[in-house]
Simulated scan of single mutants.
Amino acid sequence: MTGRDHDHVTRVMRTVSCDASAARSRLAASWQRSFAHHRLDPAAAPPQDRDTTRLAEQEEMLGRLLHVASPRLDELFSTIGQSGHGVFMTDARGLILRARQRAADEADFIRSGLVAGGDWSEEAQGTNGIGTCLAEKRPLIIHRDQHYLARNIAMSCIDAPVFDHEGTLIAALDVSSPRAESDGFNQLIGAMVSGIASKIEIDLFRDIHSDRQIVLVGDDRAGTALLAVDRDGLVVGATRSARIGCGLARQGALRPVPLRDVLGETSEGLSGAEKAALTRALARANGNVSAAARALGIGRATLYRRMKRLGISGAD
């Protein structure tokens, strides 16, 4: 163990021995988890075995996500790859599923264990970008000696969580580098990583709800607060941002609910619902009453009577 490694281990042990430290710092809290819950020795060198069996299982299970994410990983790597950074995507338990790095940097990442099939959960590696991002479900940067294990302190790891179409944590997006970078540069890459993670969430949501109307709600400049609405005007899906903003269930399948209710629009009872249904039918028929009547399964005269009663205008 080098002198630098020894100093790091001493600092970690001093921190985890102080009960109050975890309350003052999220980093210290993660170190505490690594020591007390996962029972990891900060001086230890964890095995670098690749779990190829689990890798194959997760690749099959998350095939749709990986297909959707692939262009985004390429997009991110094309921006930062030449600076010696690698781009990685994991499952929700920290298993690396995809890796992008230059051939010239591959040996460094292999030595660090950042390869497909590598386990970067907090349970296996202690505090690190991937594992701690997944444990805390938030974007973060674990820079060099913020890692728990002394063997990892040469790395800088920048991460963001990825949530699926039901608001459930499904993956982590990671950018790592064995090179020393400034805090400002790491923050810049952090913004890129979070942006790409959001794009992956949107792409996955739109892919799964490709047969639905997609509605952007609220003042969401990032465009991540999306609702999926069926032909009856019922919300049947929502991204995590939309769930939080609209007060919907944080995760899991949604109970279908009228879009008007989600948006907080005043209900007008049965007549309002009927008027909305007729208006939608006329809009789809480009104002053609005969075509709208056929779509609704009623006679043209019946539709005219209902339009008159509800104050709806239209023309063939």
Rank of each mutant, 00 (worst) to 15 (best):
D183H: 10
A222C: 01
K199W: 09
A135Q: 07
G167Q: 02
M192I: 04
H147R: 12
R212N: 14
V162G: 01
Q187M: 14
D220H: 08
V217H: 03
E201C: 02
A154C: 11
K199P: 06
G223H: 10
D174C: 13
D183I: 05
K137P: 02
Q187W: 06
A180G: 01
I202Y: 05
R144S: 09
S156A: 14
D174G: 08
S194A: 15
T168N: 07
I214A: 05
D183W: 13
M155I: 13
N152V: 08
S194W: 10
I189M: 03
T168Y: 11
A197E: 05
L149Y: 04
Q146T: 06
I208E: 09
L140F: 09
C157S: 11
D211A: 15
F163E: 00
G167P: 07
L149G: 04
S176W: 01
E136M: 12
H165L: 11
N186A: 14
A172W: 02
R151I: 10
R151Q: 12
I170V: 14
I170F: 03
L216T: 08
D164I: 05
S176Y: 01
G184W: 05
Y148I: 06
D164E: 05
F205Q: 01
A180N: 04
R151P: 08
A150W: 00
D219Y: 01
H147Y: 07
M155K: 05
I202V: 13
Y148R: 11
Y148E: 07
G184L: 11
I153S: 05
L134R: 09
S194I: 06
C157G: 10
A160H: 04
I200Y: 00
I196S: 07
R212C: 15
M192N: 11
A197S: 13
A180Y: 08
D174H: 07
L204T: 01
R144C: 07
G223R: 08
Q187A: 15
M155E: 08
G167S: 05
C133P: 00
E136I: 09
E166W: 07
Q213Y: 15
L173D: 00
D183V: 12
S156F: 00
I189A: 00
A160E: 05
D159T: 14
D207G: 08
L188W: 10
A160D: 01
E136K: 12
G190P: 03
D145M: 07
